[in-house]
Design a protein around this nucleic acid. Structure first.
Lengths: 152, 152
DNA sequence: TCTAATACCTACAGCCGTTGTAGGAGCAAG
DNA sequence: CTTGCTCCTACAACGGCTGTAGGTATTAGA
């Protein structure tokens, strides 16, 4: 199977697959006489696994670990469990933070009753740092999950 | 005021302030005889505004718009309202997506009862794309909000 | 006056996870 | 033999910073 077909079947993009190979998440593919990458269904499975993990927001590093741990058949899955739990905590944390943001935004927006900019409550709220209720302690790093992000 | 003090007072980093100037979010600062940037309390206000917006997760482009709109004193604040509402929608969307992720992760994790990797339910769930409930339509782009992110 | 410490300057690389581009080469059909 | 698609490599760009290298300015103390 050529890279284009692998991309189509996995739902990803050609570039992304090459990128995964580049960073060692996918093994180097065998090449045809014309230097084109040749893939098997094993590769497809692996790409689907990665894609699925990405949808769960696992980082590529976490996925790398998962792939390695998953490969060691006899090992206890405690470590895998741990990575998943860690991800869950990240998600929970982020939800908390976003809920907080949401309330504040709603409050600010509902306080605006139109009129000219100089009297705009939204601008005022955003200017007035003192009344900030969304004190940040770092819950918002990017987390991704976007094969079809742009197309979405 | 020198850039270091502005950074301290705003809670940001020196580099970040220079970056904001570079991308035109802050006006070019006047320079001392020794070529050092000189700031006033106006600059501080502006940086605090930006910082506060960032805590709400507004993108720098949105902030650029807010700053411009906020400057046009006589204009109606409808457009500002619109930007805030847009941000609110983004936040709501992201929460929805994360809630979905959370349930799935919890389900997967609770299905794992230890044992060796080859029988690990987590790996199985992540492999089996067919049972994916977290169908992605692009709610997870990065969104940031991190002046003190690393320091958390 | 010299020196050491600090804060400042510019310019550029690096982070993540892709995506897009330029400039070629392979390959099947008409 | 040309068209048109896919493939190749190598590299730049995105957002929003952060960090580094290598230099200059300013200030405090001996």
């Amino acid at each position: 199977m050529l890279i284009g077909q692998l991309a189509r079947l996995s739902g990803g993009k050609v570039q992304t697959i090459r990128y995964y190979e580049q960073i060692g998440l996918l093994p180097h593919a065998h090449r045809s006489s014309g230097n084109q990458r040749l893939y098997t269904s094993d590769h497809l499975e692996r790409v689907l696994f990665i894609r699925h993990c990405r949808e769960f927001g696992f980082s590529l590093e976490q996925i790398r670990e998962l792939l390695q741990l998953g490969g060691e058949q006899e090992r206890s899955c405690a470590q895998i469990d741990q990575i998943a739990r860690q991800r869950l905590e990240e998600v929970k944390h982020k939800i908390q933070r976003l809920e907080c943001l949401k309330s504040e935004l709603e409050r600010i927006i509902s306080s605006c009753h139109g009129g000219p900019t100089y009297a705009c409550r939204i601008i005022q709220s955003l200017s007035d740092h003192a009344q900030c209720l969304v004190a940040d302690h770092g819950a918002m790093e990017s987390s991704a999950a976007g094969w079809s992000e742009k197309g979405g």
